[in-house]
Each structure stands twice: as structure tokens, then as C-alpha cells.
């Protein structure tokens, strides 16, 4: 399941709902991304997340389908927020449930790595020198490439 939303989410409640009633789940791995107050050496007052409505959901659904094809997942949840967020606020949640921990951990890592390089979101950071669009990082491409082979129609 994927969700793109402006409002915050409650990780505890989301995880409980994700696995409720499914006793085949033996492992639940979760990643929660937060807004930092520093980018390199510069302080960040806030950031605004922009996205491409329509394509964002399509790409997230495709990435989830790819994770489900690769690992035996019982449940899967991706929530990504948009709009203006301040340091400490939650940006993203990725949770994967499986019978055993290895599939849950791996699928969770895969989902966040692919999300970061394929889902059309952009961060605008507010710093002391004004607002600045965050540049894509090569280390993110490398992290995503660990999970190759890539779909032929996904760029980067």
C-alpha cells in the first residue's frame, strides 16, 4: 500500500494496522526518514517537498510491486509526505512485513533506495542564504544500483 499525503502519520498506529490479524508475519522492518536541521555545513530552517501528482503514485506502486516480486512479503506500506516540513518532522515511512527478518530488512532497504532515485519528489531547503533546491546525490544512485537489475523503463 502506498500513500502520499501532506499530514503527519503515527508510526506505531500504522505498523499495528499493517500487521493486524496476520499471524504469518514474524518480522516487521521499518524505516522512518526525518528532516535534519543541517545540510552539509548549513543550517536548515525547513524544507518543502514538491512532487508530481499521478506519476508519484504510479512510481511508488511500481516500486512496491517490484519489492513484492523479489521478496515474500506479507504486507508493505510506503507513506511519503509533501509540503513544508520542519526539522524533526517525519518525511517518509517504509515498512515491510514477512515471515522472517531477512526478507523484511532487505525489502525495506530496497524500497527506500529505489524510492529516493525514482519517485518524483524534490526538496527545497530553507537556509540562511535563502531557499535552495537539493541536488541529487551520487551515493543515492549507488545505493539504488546495489539492487540491480533495474527496470528498463526507469531512468537514472
Amino acid at each position: 500500500m502506498i500513500r502520499v499525503q501532506r499530514e503527519d502519520f503515527d508510526p506505531g498506529r500504522e505498523l499495528a494496522a499493517l500487521t493486524a490479524g496476520n499471524h504469518k508475519v514474524g518480522g516487521l522492518a521499518v524505516f522512518v526518514g526525518l528532516v535534519r536541521d543541517m545540510a552539509g555545513d548549513e543550517t536548515v530552517g525547513a524544507m518543502t517537498l514538491e512532487h508530481y501528482p499521478g506519476m508519484t503514485e504510479k512510481m511508488l506502486e511500481r516500486i512496491e510491486a517490484e519489492a513484492r516480486a523479489r521478496w515474500p512479503l506479507e504486507a508493505c506500506l510506503v507513506i511519503h509526505r509533501t509540503g513544508r516540513l520542519e526539522p524533526g518532522e517525519r518525511i517518509v515511512l517504509v515498512a515491510c512485513a514477512s515471515a522472517h527478518r531477512q526478507a523484511a530488512f532487505e525489502a525495506c532497504g530496497f524500497l527506500i533506495d529505489w524510492l529516493k532515485t525514482k519517485a518524483p519528489f524534490w526538496k527545497l531547503e530553507e537556509g540562511p542564504a535563502g531557499a535552495k533546491w537539493v541536488e541529487a546525490r551520487e551515493s543515492d544512485d549507488e545505493a539504488a544500483a546495489r539492487w540491480a537489475p533495474e527496470e528498463p523503463d526507469a531512468a537514472e
Binding site: 512532487h51 508530481y52 511519503h80 525514482k118 519517485a119 518524483p120 519528489f121 524534490w122 541536488e135 541529487a136
Partner: peptide, 10 residues
Amino acid sequence: VALFPPVTGG
């Protein structure tokens, strides 16, 4: 057709 920079979500 959409034009945009390399993505930076997550």
C-alpha cells in the same frame, strides 16, 4: 510531457 531535475525525495 514533464520536465524535472533528478529526484530528491525520501
